[in-house]
Amino acid sequence: MMMSRGTATMVRSVTGPMSARLFSIAAGTGSVIGAARISAGLAGSEKAVATWWIKSYPVIGARNASTVALGEKEQQDHKEETVAGGGATSGDQKGKEVVSYWGVPQSKLTKEDGSEWKWNCFKPWETYQADLSIDLKKHHVPKTFLDKFAYWTVKSLRLPTDIFFQRRYGCRAMMLETVAAVPGMVGGMLLHCKSLRRFEHSGGWIKALLEEAENERMHLMTFMEVAKPRWYERALVFTVQGVFFNAYFLAYLASPKLAHRITGYLEEEAIHSYTEFLKELDKGNIENVKAPAIAIDYWRLPADSTLRDVVMVVRADEAHHRDVNHFASDIHYQGHELKDSPAPIGYH
């Protein structure tokens, strides 16, 4: 839009403090109708510039007007709630639901007994009862070079862990789960990208591996309630997870059968670690405290469950992950791809 010399002179004359005032007023009204209101409070040349600006750029005003209107509505709703409730406290503010223009619903869930579901990190339909009847003694005997490489790689990783944690099995479990949750996420991510590149289905393996990663993460969330990590243990997590993530990522790109075999042996070591954990609990060397609330809801445990019950179900989960990853490796060894065999979704 071309301006006359006189209009341009007026625009230059009101730059500086006036321009900031003009911009804020124009954005706040957001319509040509607002020009009359603005002009009422401005003098001579300022009126002309204000009217010209809003007529020239109505989109900017309209865009801001919707946001401003939303903010005013939220403030009005908040005032009404405050009056109705006799004033809002800081606790009320923290518990208030997020108000959004986009209309995304926030689900309110309840347990089977009708009580409120207090977890937002997992939902009731993601809970389950662990299968404790699984064979814990199964072991894949390494025969090929890749199998032996995977086996001894995992064994070598166990040595520094034993030295560092010794019999502090709570912190050991915490560290173990920060690493154990990586393979499923890496494998699921790479299979996801492969599926997109090749325009093909995954046979459900993306979901199965991500399900494994989520289950391992919930193990960590549970043991965080039991063992409070020290600052240097948290620092160690950054180092170990950073190295392991990148190493496993490259290993999966190079050989998925090797990567899954490594994970299978890692799960075998996890079973051994949790078995030792149970022995220490039975001996009384570790206090058998009440099970964390998050564990009771996640595994649908009885309300009077203890730490020993939690370790039992976690160990069973690790045994199921052991089977899934050795199975995935066997599929590759037999010359097939994972998508050729249905994934054991929900196996744990």
Rank of each mutant, 00 (worst) to 15 (best):
Thr7Asn: 06
Thr9Trp: 13
Pro17Glu: 12
Pro17Val: 14
Ala27Ser: 11
Ser31His: 05
Ser31Cys: 12
Gly34Asp: 13
Ile38Cys: 03
Leu42Gln: 05
Tyr57Lys: 08
Val59Cys: 08
Ala62Cys: 10
Val68Glu: 07
Val68Met: 12
Val68Gly: 04
Glu72Arg: 11
His78Gln: 15
Glu81Trp: 04
Gln93Ile: 15
Val98Cys: 11
Val104Pro: 08
Pro105Leu: 07
Ser115Pro: 15
Asn120Met: 09
Trp125His: 07
Ala130Lys: 00
Asp135Gly: 06
Leu136Met: 08
Lys138Asn: 08
Val141Tyr: 02
Pro142Cys: 05
Phe145Glu: 15
Lys148His: 10
Phe149Arg: 08
Leu157Cys: 09
Ile163Thr: 11
Tyr169Cys: 13
Ala173Thr: 12
Met175Ser: 04
Val182Met: 02
Val186Gly: 00
Met189Trp: 07
Lys207Asn: 01
Glu212Gln: 08
Arg217Thr: 05
Glu225Ala: 11
Leu236Ala: 06
Val237Phe: 03
Phe249Asp: 10
Tyr252Val: 01
Ala254Gly: 05
Ile262Gly: 07
Ser273Asn: 15
Leu278His: 07
Gly284Asp: 10
Gly284Trp: 06
Glu287Phe: 03
Ala291Tyr: 01
Pro292His: 02
Pro292Ile: 04
Ala303Asp: 14
Val310Asn: 03
His321Met: 09
Arg322Ala: 03
Asp323Pro: 09
Ala328His: 01
Glu337Tyr: 00
Glu337Met: 04
Leu338His: 00
Asp340Ala: 02
Asp340Ser: 09
Ile345Ser: 11
